[in-house]
């Protein structure tokens, strides 16, 4: 199977797409069939929790596979080198908008945050614009957006994406206006790379498809245990915890819940797939949309490991400014949604 994909990536794509559609269409009947085999009575807590689990796990896995595959291909059209070229010398506001959008499609991993930061600064990308990119790249994650779409519908996915962009644009713009260039470690400005020798190889369409498969293999292999765990927790809550359990704690009426969710979310770190089932469970049990989205953004957008990595290039005050401005943006978004809905 893996060999076949390797040698005939394009035919494999066609076959697997067919298989994907068939499986996706059969999710509900399969889950129901499974429940009737077990002989459990419909309507009981355990039955419904199990039904939720055997329906959601394959569904989310299928969605995840599809999205990771497509984004894996799309990413081959964007490289940090090209993004940097597009952003060099851009004016503050227009640059922030462009950087935030490129943050979504340019391949990025927080482990590369430092070389990327240096590469941007060196190419003359303004500091505020660089921050817009660094904020948007992890937060508006394709995995998050499509899982939100799959589980809650396009409105929630759209809200998440547009407010994430808004935060990245505004926070980058604010940081740019603060004129904090002196708070970047001095050695960063002294690096002059010999980047000119780097030639870009244009991949063939076959290569791009193979990158898509590679991404699926890497990411799905990494993410599925979190998914199982997350949906398992969701299933447990589904059948057993009363409907309005979270309403008092994370509902609209609890005004302190938004900043509290962000405070708890920042040190927590999870990939987007791991957090979605928790979000699912919270929303279902009466937590308000604003508070839940704020929690999710804080968990995947602001992470302690990434902040520690960034400390290598940013002086301490700038780390605080960065976290403060982004957290402020997230809190604003949380209140905004709680107010509107």
């Amino acid at each position: 199977m893996i060999k076949f994909i390797d040698q005939h990536p394009i035919s494999a794509t066609v076959i697997l797409t067919g298989l994907w559609i068939t499986l996706y269409a059969a999710l509900q009947p399969l889950a129901d069939a499974f429940i009737s085999i077990t002989g459990l009575t419909s309507g009981e807590h355990l039955t419904e929790a199990l039904r939720f689990f055997v329906f959601e796990v394959p569904k989310v896995l299928l969605l995840l596979t599809l999205v990771v595959f497509v984004v894996g291909i799309v990413r081959t059209y964007f490289s940090p080198e090209r993004t940097r070229k597009l952003l060099g010398g851009k004016s503050l506001f227009a640059g922030n908008v462009l950087a935030s959008m490129l943050g979504i499609v340019t391949p990025f991993c927080s482990c590369s945050a430092i070389p990327l930061f240096i590469g941007f600064v060196e190419a003359g990308v303004p500091l505020g614009v660089t921050f817009s990119f660094l904020i948007a790249a992890p937060m508006i994650n394709e995995i998050a957006v499509v899982l939100l779409f799959g589980l809650f519908g396009w409105q929630t996915a759209f809200l998440y994406m547009s407010t994430g962009l808004l935060i990245a644009i505004t926070a980058g713009y604010v940081i740019g206006r603060l004129k904090v260039e002196h708070l970047v470690e001095d050695w960063v400005y002294q690096i002059h790379s010999n980047a000119a020798v780097m030639e870009e190889i244009v991949p063939s369409f076959r290569d791009r498809i193979q990158s898509g498969f590679g991404a699926v293999k890497d990411i799905v292999a990494k993410v599925w245990p979190y998914l199982l765990l997350g949906i398992g927790v969701g299933a447990g809550i589904h059948g057993y915890v009363p409907e309005n359990f979270m309403a008092g704690l994370m509902g609209k009426s609890a005004w302190w819940s938004v900043p509290a969710a962000v405070l708890i979310g920042v040190p927590l770190y999870s990939n987007a797939a791991g957090i979605i089932p928790i979000v699912h469970a919270l929303l279902e049990k009466g937590a308000s949309l604003g508070t839940t989205l704020a929690f999710m953004m804080a968990v995947i957008g602001l992470s302690l490991p990434e902040t520690i990595i960034l400390r290598k290039v940013l002086k301490m005050p700038l780390i605080f400014i960065f976290v403060g401005v982004v957290a402020g943006g997230i809190i604003f978004v949380g209140y905004f949604f709680n107010f509107v809905y």
């Binding site: 080198e81 590369s112 070389p115 780097m198």
Partner: peptide, 13 residues
């Protein structure tokens, strides 16, 4: 070493 990595112009590890 990030400085060396950046020196080569590598932006993705």
């Amino acid at each position: 070493d990030f400085q060396k990595i950046a020196f080569y112009g590598i932006m993705r590890t």
